[in-house]
């Protein structure tokens, strides 16, 4: 295999995982923009997506095309429940308290998944076939193509949601100025619930897409999710284009350093570069 084919292979792998990070990062941003906190339960939305897909396929025997949207919808629902029961009742406005609260919720969700699905690793079949496609000499899994296509579609839908729908506009209003939004009669509470729903949907989607490539376990989302968080910060926390850019860059960085340096230290390189970028440009790449 030539050097170019290697490079192509790494780049493709990087974009694929980058797409996943971007979805997760978007989930972090949505909640951050409306509530102003880091929602650490986001990482478990990813695992939950995989879990619900698994159950849909093997417990209920649904076909993939049905199980996949159902799984995403189920995680969306979980997002709403989390906001309703976990975040909204908080009497504190202190961000420290709210962030720790989401950590607590995350622990509960993980504990719950462990109870329901057990601690063992499971496998989820890919959306498309298993036979790798050959593009310019590089081998690419159909699942990777599916990830790219669906992620692009999802981001397109998200853009439409924020620009073209009433709720989306409300969410942008709340993000830019919560008090003003409340004054002009935007239902801030419902917007916050919607942001968690959206975060759940995005995390769940990342989960159903990625678990066929990784394996599935109750804590699969932790590292993936934290990298999504890192991607969001890299791009500039709260910025949607930043989240996508940060995700892709992080994915590329990881896959290139795994390919050319050491796969054992790919997590290290990702986080070290992140810390260095923050050192030079503390607001992230596209942050305001």
């Amino acid at each position: 295999m030539s050097g170019f084919q290697d490079l192509l292979q790494f780049v493709f792998a990087g974009i694929t995982s980058g797409a996943i990070y971007a979805l997760i990062a978007l989930g972090f941003c949505v909640v951050h923009n409306t509530i102003g906190i880091v929602n650490f339960a986001q990482v478990d939305f990813v695992s939950l997506g995989g879990m619900f897909l698994f159950s849909g396929l093997f417990w209920s025997g649904l076909p993939m095309v049905v199980a996949l949207p159902c799984a995403v919808a189920a995680v969306t629902l979980v997002g709403i429940v989390v906001e309703r029961l976990g975040v909204r009742p908080s009497r504190s406005q202190n961000h420290l308290v709210l962030i720790f609260l989401t950590i607590g919720i995350s622990i509960i969700l993980r504990g719950g998944m462990k109870l329901i699905w057990g601690k063992n690793r499971m496998a989820v079949p890919p959306l498309a076939g298993e036979e790798p496609l050959r593009i310019a000499g590089a081998a690419i899994l159909p699942q990777a193509v599916a990830i790219l296509v669906i992620t692009t579609l999802a981001i397109g839908l998200l853009v439409f949601f924020f620009r073209g729908t009433r709720l989306g506009l409300c969410m942008r209003a709340v993000a830019s100025n919560q008090t003003a939004a409340a004054v002009v009669g935007i239902p801030v509470g419902r917007v916050k619930a919607a942001s968690f729903a959206l975060a759940g949907g995005l995390g769940g989607l990342a989960g159903v897409l990625v678990t066929p490539i990784t394996t599935l376990s109750y804590d699969v989302g932790v590292l993936l999710g934290l990298k999504g968080f890192a991607a969001a910060i890299l791009g500039g926390f709260g910025s949607f284009p930043g989240a996508v850019l940060g995700g892709l860059l992080l994915g590329l960085l990881e896959s290139l350093s795994a390919g050319y340096w050491s796969s054992a230290y790919k997590d290290v390189s990702a986080f070290v570069v992140l810390l260095l970028v923050l050192f030079v440009r503390p607001k992230g790449l596209l942050g305001k």
Binding site: H32, I37, L226, Y265, L274, L275, L278, F279
Partner: peptide
Amino acid sequence: VGLPALKLSGHYLAMATLGFNIVVYTILVQ
């Protein structure tokens, strides 16, 4: 770690410290 991260508040520090922990842990394992 603290000098750059503490310039910013809240989530940046959460990220920096988390990332630092993951880096150290990976080194311990690898």
